[in-house]
Design a protein around this nucleic acid. Sequence first.
DNA 1: AAATCCCACTTGCAATTTGCAAGTAGTTGG
DNA 2: CCAACTACTTGCAAATTGCAAGTGGGATTT
Lengths: 142, 142
Amino acid sequence: MKIETSQRSECVFSNVLDLLGDKWTLLIVRDLMFFGKHEYKEFLASPEAIATNILSDRLKKLVSAEIVDEQEHPENKSRKFYYLTKKGKALLPILIEMANWGAVYFPALERMQGVYAKLRSNPDKVRAAVLKNLSNWESENL
Amino acid sequence: MKIETSQRSECVFSNVLDLLGDKWTLLIVRDLMFFGKHEYKEFLASPEAIATNILSDRLKKLVSAEIVDEQEHPENKSRKFYYLTKKGKALLPILIEMANWGAVYFPALERMQGVYAKLRSNPDKVRAAVLKNLSNWESENL
DNA sequence: AAATCCCACTTGCAATTTGCAAGTAGTTGG
DNA sequence: CCAACTACTTGCAAATTGCAAGTGGGATTT
């Protein structure tokens, strides 16, 4: 894999977009953040149908950017757990704002479900609940 | 230009990323939002050096998504003004959160300048100031 | 009035990235 | 031992990007 070393400019946005600015990376983060997914096959099962080579590439980039960490599955050597680092969890406010914007400007979308449902009404509560879920998973699995 | 009609899934994130998930679109929004840029040549002059065909394509997509609107330049028929719609301005919280995240996790970057400087210390104030700048420009130029 | 310049693009083409299908290596369950 | 599962890799065609050059309509200069 090509690890990105060059930066387009000194601007924060440019650097953030070099890392996250594509159609797949943040979907993986979404799965980790909101949907309790932690394994390769679970990401593959998402409705957007990411290709295996792209998933593999993006996971490596996320790990090398220290947004995601990986660990051998305790029950099975051929499986792996992926989970958000502190840096990865810090993306939550960005995702929340994206979800808010999307909820307002894509009104035709299916009614928001599950974790999204309360985003607009009580973002701080959702934020706390999401992080709590993640730390619960960590104490049970890592 | 190909107007995107297909959506990968019903998920908000997926739909938002279909629109904004690439390395250039949000940089144009950044220029409109924070840097007082309103013309084609001004976007071209940004340090990231976007190619003319990509800029043209992204501007069209932003206009067709109603994030940006365009108007003939009052002084010169061959020039155009581009400016953020209400929907475009509503992206500000996303950009602010991205800037915050970047400021924390790209500490090696040049010290933030201008509008970015106060983002961390007083985001609400920055938010208001940015929107005020935009509406000032609008009342002077539209 | 003609020539030049500026501006916002478009076009052509090579290089890179993506999407899709198939294959592979290590592990585990029966 | 064999089949199934898991996390990948590989090969190749298609789509997207980056770069350089060109175009066409104004405005400016001479």
